[in-house]
């Protein structure tokens, strides 16, 4: 029983890691980033490659992935998103195209495979990352087996959520992001550099995705198409939690994580997905704007 709850927490924390970035970007910019899952994937590959070539462990890969994915995010924002601010819905499509490109870039090893060059750690095959020794030995707490790696994921997601909350509610830049979320034109009229803040917001969201990817690489097989299903799960969390609500994302990922874990315990993973999907539909029917949302009227 406790095992199931623990797995639920761990699933929820992974969901939260993915959904945090999505929620902030969609909530403040109205941009639908379908490449978010691929950014997670890039984070995972950063862990893979840094283990092979830089010989650093998972912990060090975290900040590296954050920086790389944030940089990638800035690039995407500049080249693609910036041209679509007057037709936000098309960001869904354009970022999907970017997602395809990112996936193929990894699969085709950035084009090198055409020349017969194979880069270890890239390509269509499966990759994996070894978890640092300190996190791989299960700890016995009486009857309950504590999986340290999963606990680590839960801790990281709490830390990141707290850090995001701090950025949003206790710093000047967070205030500006929230102002833009409420009313973009007024924020600009108040002297906020909306373009710059949007670019930084997108970069931050992408960086978070990168960290999520590193965490995933420790327990999931890393492959080029691991991102597609994630972006769906991430958006389901955002839809249930309420757009723009940090608390909503946390609660929603917790609820959906526990639900998945419990249903999977009694039947299997696929039925769990079906049940979670049905529950999401029910929640949307009952509360179309999500569980928590800041829009009063």
């Amino acid at each position: 029983m406790l095992d199931t709850v623990f797995i639920g927490l761990s699933l929820g924390s992974v969901l939260l890691l993915v959904a945090l970035g999505l929620s902030i970007v969609y909530g403040s910019m109205g941009v639908i980033n379908m490449a978010h899952g691929e950014l997670v994937m890039i984070g995972a590959y950063t862990a893979v490659l840094s283990q092979i070539y830089l010989d650093i462990n998972l912990f060090a890969a975290i900040p590296l992935a954050f920086v790389i994915c944030a940089g990638l995010g800035l690039l995407i924002e500049k080249l693609v998103i910036r041209r679509l601010y007057n037709r936000l819905f098309d960001t869904l499509l354009a970022t999907w195209g970017v997602a395809i490109l990112l996936q193929q870039a990894i699969r085709l090893e950035f084009g090198l495979s055409f020349f017969g060059i194979h880069v270890d750690g890239l390509g269509p095959g499966l990759q994996s990352v070894t978890v640092p020794k300190v996190l791989s030995e299960p700890i016995m707490l009486g009857d309950f087996v504590l999986q340290p790696y999963r606990t680590f994921i839960i801790l990281i997601s709490i830390v990141l959520a707290a850090f995001t909350w701090f950025l949003m509610y206790r710093t000047r830049i967070g205030q500006q992001v929230r102002a833009i979320m409420r009313n973009k034109e007024m924020a600009a009229a108040c002297g906020i550099d909306v373009k710059k803040i949007n670019a930084l917001t997108f970069a931050y969201g992408s960086g978070l995705a990168g960290v999520a990817g590193v965490m995933m690489s420790g327990f999931k097989t890393v492959m080029p198409d691991m991102g597609s299903a994630m972006v769906v799960d991430g958006f389901l969390v955002v839809v249930v939690g309420g757009v723009g609500s940090l608390v909503g994302s946390i609660v929603a990922s917790g609820v959906l994580g526990q639900l998945t874990s419990f249903v999977a315990f009694f039947s299997n993973d696929i039925i769990a997905r079906a049940v979670v999907f049905a529950v999401v539909i029910c929640i949307i029917v009952w509360r179309p704007r999500g569980l928590f949302n800041y829009k009063g009227r």
Binding site: V80, R83, L84, R87, D90, L93, A94, W96, G97, V98, A99, I100, L101, Q103, Q104, A105, L108, S113, F114
Partner: peptide, 23 residues
């Protein structure tokens, strides 16, 4: 062979370009 492998990537690129410049 070259194109088979890169077809998805070409499609993806076309998609982005069409959405940006030829909605």
């Amino acid at each position: 062979e070259l194109f088979v492998e890169s077809w998805q990537a070409i499609l993806g690129l076309c998609f982005v370009l069409v959405v940006l410049f030829m909605p």
